[in-house]
Deep mutational scan, measured.
Amino acid sequence: KVLVLALYDYQEKSPREVTMKKGDILTLLNSTNKDWWKVEVNGRQGFVPAAYVKVL
């Protein structure tokens, strides 16, 4: 399983997205889209901007 680090806070803007806080460790589920990556955080799955996270 691939983990990513949240570099910035992100507030979800649609039901398909998830909120994350800077420093959160998320599970990367899909990174085929260069702009939006699907992650799991706190038991929820959704998209975050790829530029806001870094693969650990």
Rank of each mutant, 00 (worst) to 15 (best):
N33T: 07
V4L: 14
E17T: 10
F47C: 08
A51E: 08
D9A: 10
E40C: 11
R44V: 12
L26C: 08
Q45C: 09
D9P: 07
S31K: 13
L5N: 03
W37T: 04
E40P: 00
W36G: 01
D9M: 04
L3Q: 10
T19Y: 04
L29Q: 05
T32M: 12
V2I: 13
K13I: 11
K34L: 09
K54C: 12
K1Q: 14
D24M: 12
K13R: 14
K21L: 10
Q11G: 10
T32E: 15
D9V: 02
K34M: 11
L56F: 10
G46V: 03
A6M: 02
V48S: 01
V55F: 13
K13Q: 15
V4F: 05
V2R: 11
E40T: 07
K13L: 14
L5V: 12
K21Q: 10
A6T: 04
L3N: 07
G23V: 00
N33L: 10
A6N: 01
G46E: 02
Y8T: 10
L26Y: 13
T27C: 08
A6D: 00
G23F: 05
S14P: 04
K22S: 09
T27F: 12
N33H: 15
S14Y: 07
T27M: 13
D9R: 03
E40V: 07
D9S: 10
R16Q: 14
T19H: 04
L28D: 00
G46T: 02
D24F: 05
K13P: 05
S31E: 08
G43F: 08
W37K: 02
Q45R: 12
G43R: 06
K22M: 10
P15C: 08
R16N: 15
W37P: 02
S14L: 08
T32D: 15
L3V: 11
K38L: 15
L26T: 01
V18H: 04
K21C: 08
R16P: 06
Y10M: 01
K38H: 13
L56C: 07
Q45L: 10
V55I: 14
L29E: 04
T19D: 04
W37D: 01
G46Y: 03
R16Y: 14
N42M: 13
Y52Q: 05
N33W: 09
T32L: 11
N30Q: 13
Y52H: 06
I25K: 06
R16F: 14
A50P: 05
D24I: 04
L29G: 02
P49S: 02
Y8K: 13
K1G: 10
W37Y: 11
Q11W: 15
A51V: 11
K54T: 14
T27N: 09
V55S: 06
V18E: 01
Q11I: 14
V41I: 15
P15K: 09
R44H: 11
W36V: 03
D9W: 04
L56Q: 07
V55Y: 11
E40H: 06
G23K: 02
V41Q: 12
A6H: 00
V2C: 09
L7N: 03
K1I: 12
L5T: 08
V53E: 00
L7F: 03
S31F: 12
S31A: 13
T19Q: 05
K34Y: 09
D24A: 09
F47D: 04
V53A: 03
V48L: 02
T19N: 07
W36H: 04
E12C: 09
L5W: 07
K22H: 07
L5R: 09
I25F: 06
A51G: 09
K38C: 11
D35E: 13
V53I: 10
Y10L: 01
G46L: 04
K38E: 14
V18Y: 05
L7K: 05
L26V: 07
P49E: 01
D24Y: 05
Y10S: 01
V4A: 13
G46D: 01
Y10E: 00
T19P: 07
D35N: 09
T32R: 13
V4D: 00
D35Y: 14
S31L: 07
K22P: 03
K38M: 15
G23N: 07
E17L: 06
V48F: 01
W36D: 02
V39P: 00
L26P: 02
A50F: 03
P15F: 09
E12I: 07
S31D: 14
N42Q: 09
V18S: 02
R16T: 15
E40D: 12
L28G: 01
L28T: 01
V41E: 04
A50G: 05
K13G: 11
V18W: 05
V48R: 00
K21A: 10
Q45T: 15
V18R: 02
N42L: 13
V18A: 05
K1D: 14
V39D: 00
V4G: 10
S14Q: 08
D9E: 06
E12H: 11
G23R: 03
V41G: 10
K54V: 14
